[in-house]
Design a protein around this nucleic acid. Sequence first.
DNA 1: TCACCTTAGGTTATAATGTTGCAATTCTAC
DNA 2: GTAGAATTGCAACATTATAACCTAAGGTGA
Lengths: 173, 173
Amino acid sequence: MTQSSQDNCSSEQDSHKTHAKHNHDRCIATALNDAVLLCEQRGARLTQLRQRVLELVWQTHKPVGAYELLPLLAKEGFNSAPPTVYRALDFLLELGLVHRISSINAFIGCNQPKHEHPNGFFICRQCGNASELPALQLRELAKQLEASLGITIEGETHELTGLCASCSSKAQK
Amino acid sequence: MTQSSQDNCSSEQDSHKTHAKHNHDRCIATALNDAVLLCEQRGARLTQLRQRVLELVWQTHKPVGAYELLPLLAKEGFNSAPPTVYRALDFLLELGLVHRISSINAFIGCNQPKHEHPNGFFICRQCGNASELPALQLRELAKQLEASLGITIEGETHELTGLCASCSSKAQK
DNA sequence: TCACCTTAGGTTATAATGTTGCAATTCTAC
DNA sequence: GTAGAATTGCAACATTATAACCTAAGGTGA
């Protein structure tokens, strides 16, 4: 359970380094473990289908489209019509196990499902990896905006694009 | 040209007050005027179709879907197939005259097309109005994130939902 | 255990959103 | 006024998401 933060990528501080070599199996295992616990807590059923969809979403750190999942599920003998995958994704979204990135109509695993947090991502245009933005700064922004504009914020999504640290440094070489 | 800031809603400071009674004709006129100037500057052609699409987008402060515009254009004798409206919208997006709000697949007029700025909106779930978020705070956030994560941000979109100031105060009564 | 109820998933069809490719037209610059 | 570029018309199609209805599986209390 204790391990160097280089080994996986589930901790928030590391989320922007997802390009770096890491033990991705551990990412998946952690995500799955979190999911099991969360479902127990909430009395929700993590069925085979739902679990498999979660695993597939977690195969990479790149956002994945719903329709990309269909053939993968089919290959494994699952039914694979759109409603099937959308229902599974809706379930996972509801529990905060995945996020939706609406600017590219794609889904990605959440690495902090245990704690509610604003939905914010940085997507590298080079490598395609997406990483969550630090909740602290997003919350700070929201607080400021609420104070200055008199609004009440209930939901937020932030989607940034550009070059990640790794791709930036490669580009300079 | 000089007028009380209550009269229209084109200034950034007022953008969150778009619910309030205001001279909306002036909003449209200002937007159109900005568009004409910007097109002249850039050597771009603000054709009848493009201008009309811009006006239609500006009819309200609520984001409008591409497919909502089609029948409106048809009514006025314009061709109205999806590519027509999408091409016009793409043109307007390119020039920064409208923004796209991807979480709801909708478009909205930009009130500061003269200055490049981050794409950020607050959308009230009650009245449906959307207003731009202050560029200053968004830029500050971007700067922080670049510094702390080592990323290079090239594009950003922020989409917040909740209750606007007006709807909040009505809710309390 | 059984009957009942609720939840999950299968299946078909369709809605909503967005794009491609090519022909026809209009505009602009020379 | 003609060539080339930009714009629009038009038909087809691609992608993303949902509706409606039914069957199957799991959970619960008598």
